[in-house]
Simulated assay, not measured.
Amino acid sequence: MDRWLAQLSGARNASPKTVEAYRRDVAGFLAFLSQHWGGPAGQAALARVGTRDMRAWMAHERGRGLSARSMARALSAVRTFYRWLDQAEGITAAAVTATRSPRQKPRLPRPVAEAAAADLLDLAGSLPEEPWIAARDTAVLTLLYGCGLRISEALGLTGAALPLGESLRIRGKGDKERIVPVLPVARSAVAQYVALCPYPMQRDTPIFRGLRGKPLDQRQVRKAMQLLRQSMGLPETATPHALRHSFATHLLEHGADLRAIQELLGHASLSTTQAYTAVNEQSLMRIYEAAHPRQRRG
């Protein structure tokens, strides 16, 4: 398994988080087999995994509360491991590849409404007592909503990106690189924060800092967002990542091309971006049902 994980992070450029998730899922599968069979799951044993073994594993995982989505992810990790086993060791088990993923309801993005997103960014600059902290929170959230960045991408920016120009070169998931336009309001928000930040900006250090000068942690951004949504009465789905969803949904609502949104978000597959069309359709149906004369008359 160590050799497989090394191949994942090396040849396939999988992120450390992806590698860790795969390790955890496959280790759990192997541990179950050892317990299920009453002995270690060695190479010979891995080749004789059958349909009953796979069903028993999935029943065990669901029995301990694993959701359909998490179960599908774990099964995908096990399949990936077995594909590597086939190539590297000649070990195959048809039952693994034949096992179907559990059905799961599609999870649609939950964006923040357009007016609420604007109000949220305004409020972010007034809640913290320290002016530079207020400017920092505003700058980070503006990058999420104004540029569609992931929170890790925004916090990964270093002083080498300063001063922000009209575009940013972002290295996202799977080491995929993309060019993201930067709105004047985002450039202004970051410039204001940099001017107020008490810590020096160096090319190789993160732009965004915590109270004591260490790199800003994602948990601190989530906490700031929690305070904002509580102040505004927004649902718990209003997270930092929801601002990225809002970026895509609002662009789509204003006529942006789906392919362009895919490029801006850095999605490897268009099918991932297409989830936003379903959100847009739901919004249109709500407007239709509320506004159509026949609906009001009924």
Score class of each variant (00 low, 15 high):
residue 114 E to A: 12
residue 116 A to N: 08
residue 116 A to D: 15
residue 118 A to S: 07
residue 118 A to W: 06
residue 119 D to R: 09
residue 119 D to S: 10
residue 120 L to H: 10
residue 121 L to N: 08
residue 127 L to W: 06
residue 127 L to F: 08
residue 129 E to N: 02
residue 131 P to F: 04
residue 134 A to F: 07
residue 136 R to S: 04
residue 136 R to N: 06
residue 138 T to A: 02
residue 139 A to L: 02
residue 140 V to P: 04
residue 144 L to N: 02
residue 146 G to H: 01
residue 146 G to D: 00
residue 151 I to S: 06
residue 151 I to R: 07
residue 151 I to C: 12
residue 152 S to D: 03
residue 154 A to N: 05
residue 156 G to E: 05
residue 161 A to D: 05
residue 162 L to A: 14
residue 162 L to H: 12
residue 162 L to C: 13
residue 163 P to V: 00
residue 163 P to S: 00
residue 163 P to D: 02
residue 164 L to A: 01
residue 164 L to G: 02
residue 165 G to C: 11
residue 165 G to I: 13
residue 166 E to I: 04
residue 167 S to I: 01
residue 168 L to S: 05
residue 170 I to E: 05
residue 171 R to K: 15
residue 171 R to E: 15
residue 172 G to N: 13
residue 172 G to V: 10
residue 177 E to V: 14
residue 177 E to D: 10
residue 178 R to M: 01
residue 180 V to E: 13
residue 180 V to S: 10
residue 181 P to Q: 03
residue 181 P to N: 03
residue 183 L to S: 12
residue 184 P to D: 11
residue 186 A to Y: 12
residue 187 R to S: 09
residue 187 R to F: 14
residue 187 R to K: 10
residue 188 S to T: 11
residue 189 A to N: 03
residue 192 Q to V: 05
residue 192 Q to F: 00
residue 192 Q to I: 02
residue 192 Q to N: 10
residue 193 Y to H: 01
residue 195 A to N: 01
residue 196 L to Y: 03
residue 199 Y to T: 06
residue 201 M to Y: 05
residue 204 D to Y: 01
residue 207 I to G: 09
residue 207 I to A: 08
residue 210 G to I: 11
residue 210 G to S: 15
residue 212 R to Y: 14
residue 212 R to I: 05
residue 212 R to A: 14
residue 215 P to N: 03
residue 216 L to W: 09
residue 217 D to E: 14
residue 219 R to D: 04
residue 219 R to K: 08
residue 221 V to L: 08
residue 222 R to I: 02
residue 222 R to H: 15
residue 222 R to S: 09
residue 224 A to F: 11
residue 224 A to G: 07
residue 225 M to I: 03
residue 225 M to Q: 01
residue 229 R to Q: 15
residue 229 R to A: 13
residue 230 Q to K: 09
residue 230 Q to W: 06
residue 231 S to W: 04
residue 233 G to H: 05
residue 235 P to F: 12
residue 236 E to W: 07
residue 238 A to K: 08
residue 238 A to C: 14
residue 239 T to W: 08
residue 240 P to K: 09
residue 240 P to E: 11
residue 241 H to S: 12
residue 242 A to G: 03
residue 243 L to M: 06
residue 244 R to F: 10
residue 245 H to D: 13
residue 245 H to A: 13
residue 247 F to P: 05
residue 247 F to R: 00
residue 247 F to D: 03
residue 249 T to A: 11
residue 250 H to G: 12
